[in-house]
Write a protein that binds this DNA or RNA. Structure first.
Length: 210
DNA sequence: GGATCGATCGGCT
DNA sequence: GCCGATCGATCCG
């Protein structure tokens, strides 16, 4: 069975469905002829102008214009003066929404990814939206890239489907406020997966050496 | 282990 | 001018 790139029809659906179904799929970045790849383990949905945490909540601007475009494109933004974050545009053209890729589990191209983040622990290679962009060499040159085009250098491939029992949901990281949308559980992640971002807890075995 | 803070700069009020 | 969909260093207990 040939490997299948996720299609524009896949991305052009309700954002929460797309976010949920992106978990477990394989994000691939073609970098100097080499495939850098990781399994998506954590995502967040940003949904339209009614979502005050969505960059498009105040209307269309030069920065967020890609989110208003057709689904299946990369929306990459620069934040805190030093980091990039990767989103994939969802829903019908004209409705601004996207899924933020917050973490992946490295699958291929480990050595190159580590070279792109010199001196950093392997455990943090792709754990967090800024980190995974650095490891996959994703920056503003990827903004607007069409993940559905056969010749693009960034795409998502179909991988094994996951049971709902493997997935957890919660409020989005770094999003606070009293309005309902700001407290919505629109962050999805693989339960107990060591590559999911955020503070590790005592029950986390990832730092054990046993 | 957990809290706090500085870095660093584009976008928008 | 202010602040952010973050990260990593540092300080504290």
């Amino acid at each position: 069975m040939p490997i299948k790139r996720l299609t524009r029809e896949f991305y052009g659906r309700a954002t929460l469905i797309v976010a949920r179904e992106l978990l477990g799929q394989r994000l691939v970045r073609l970098y100097h002829g080499e495939q850098l790849a990781g399994r998506i383990v954590e995502v967040e949905a940003y949904i339209g102008q009614g979502d005050q945490a969505c960059h498009a909540s105040m209307g269309r601007t030069a920065r967020n214009a890609v989110m208003f475009g057709p689904p299946g494109q990369a929306y990459v933004y620069f934040i805190y003066g030093m980091h990039y974050c990767l989103n994939i545009v969802t829903e019908a053209e004209g409705f601004p929404a996207a899924v933020l890729i917050r973490a992946v589990e490295p699958q291929a191209g480990l050595a190159t990814m580590q070279a792109l983040r010199p001196g950093r622990p392997l455990a943090d290679l792709t754990r967090g939206p800024g980190r995974l962009c650095a490891a996959l060499a994703i920056d503003l040159s990827c903004n607007g890239a069409d993940l559905c085009a056969p010749d693009s250098a960034l795409w998502v491939e179909e991988d094994a489907a996951l049971p709902d029992s493997a997935i957890a949901a919660g409020p989005r990281i770094g999003v606070r406020g009293d309005m309902a949308a700001l407290q919505a559980p629109w962050r999805y992640y693989l339960q107990d997966n060591p590559w999911v971002s955020g503070r590790r807890t005592v029950t986390d075995h990832t730092t054990d050496h046993r």
